[in-house]
Design a protein around this nucleic acid. Sequence first.
DNA 1: CAAAATACGTAACATACGATACAGCGCTCC
DNA 2: GGAGCGCTGTATCGTATGTTACGTATTTTG
Lengths: 275, 275
Amino acid sequence: MISSIAELISDRIGAMPAGERRAAQTLIANYPLIGLKTVAEFSAAAGVSSPTILRFVARLGFQNYPEFQSSLQDELAAQLQSPASRTLSPSSPGGGAVSPMLEATLDNMRETFRHLSDKQLADIVAKLADRRGKTFLIGGRFTDPLARYMAAHLAIIQPNVFHLAGQESVWRDRLIDMGKRDVLIIFDIRRYQDSLVRFAETAHQRGVQIVLFTDQWLSPIARFARHVIAGRTAVPSAWDSSAALFVVAETLIGAVTRQLEADSAKRIRELESLR
Amino acid sequence: MISSIAELISDRIGAMPAGERRAAQTLIANYPLIGLKTVAEFSAAAGVSSPTILRFVARLGFQNYPEFQSSLQDELAAQLQSPASRTLSPSSPGGGAVSPMLEATLDNMRETFRHLSDKQLADIVAKLADRRGKTFLIGGRFTDPLARYMAAHLAIIQPNVFHLAGQESVWRDRLIDMGKRDVLIIFDIRRYQDSLVRFAETAHQRGVQIVLFTDQWLSPIARFARHVIAGRTAVPSAWDSSAALFVVAETLIGAVTRQLEADSAKRIRELESLR
DNA sequence: CAAAATACGTAACATACGATACAGCGCTCC
DNA sequence: GGAGCGCTGTATCGTATGTTACGTATTTTG
């Protein structure tokens, strides 16, 4: 079976005329980036003419040059998204149903954080730690627990943290309490829930700043969000994984706590004494 | 100093209008491949118009779209040529609060699964998939969301799954419904809650099989538990991390789903039709 | 509340890109 | 050594792509 274009090339390079072979060698040597450039650049790099490049990709079985480029991009996407899985998977020979799941989850986390800059997190932390407004949290069917988890922690280190739960009509009415200074943290992954989108839209119209936790395909709520955290969710399971988002949530919780160091320490002592 | 376009974006995303921010977010979420496609595809993915994409790249300082794409390609080339740079880059900026947290969490997961045998997980899966009894889930102050998360999934693929929540008196009374064939999944990490321990003890006396999710120091409930999953919780934060337990939970959910493949598929179809 | 400024999308435009027809050259085989 | 075939490059064409101008909607400011 042939899985990559590189293999396809080395498979057929023997049956190619000289010019196309030069094209093939140039592509292999600069794989795959030269193939993403224009035909003109590719041909210049290979030292052949444009038509030769086109004949080359045609011989590989592609209908046209864009189709060839799309294939290269898809390949690249798969490679970028699971950098470790191909190198690490042989290391765990046991092959129970466990390790693929773990490996995929670890990859997801690395990948999620790779797309997440310190700056972006710092902005969110600053917003959450700036206590002039209220913080609301809400989640979808499977992500509501994440909202709860985050709310449980944030509520300890600062006042005015509210988790929105229960029937839609209940939390929809809470919109009346939300304004410009407030922050709304929403968790929403596929399949995105209409009720949440509507809620987010209304909140946005009221000037509420929205922090969205979603998957890599971005919930439509991203449209209204001030900050978007896109977590990877793909795992070898019938379900999507929220683990990466969970870890981001924990990271934020930790960072906000550190930010509010002085205040939160006092608050925690006070809470202790209440028991 | 700004070395990558991703950093450049997160640096300026705050000063962008809504549409361009949306473009920025989709690029970060699908970095960098979406930026190598055509303006039309990029704009469609971001849900904005082509000119917005062009204004976006212009704001980043590029003269035109091709120049922007070249930059992305150069970046990609550098990244592909030294695969190690990807794993090293997060550690390079001096002490962002991010990577230590992530690294610790990843370590926790690896360590947690290292102490977890396939056999042990298989036993638990078999027990959960054996549907002659009921399944109850309950958690502590911070771990209740994990119980909810697991319950939300299990309840879809099989009947008789109950999450115990609310006031102590409420779920304590549910003990009357629990018997030998039933399973009780408890989440309990430091500081262990007395109420949970008492609950577990009573359930144990009634013959309920207990599956305990706890930390490496083991909740006292371990004494009554049939299966104990000990997750690592230490991270550089004021709080303990439940991420490792979360991943174990997701793994179990996935495994049980696979086990009940036929049944659950039918159930899910039936649920879909109810909507 | 009004007015200005900013931002966004629609539509027309120009360019540059990929595709193709054709001619020249070299190679092989009779 | 000559005729035929195949490979390659030049030049041209059509089109898809990036670009820009302009009108409308939205937000901000006085």
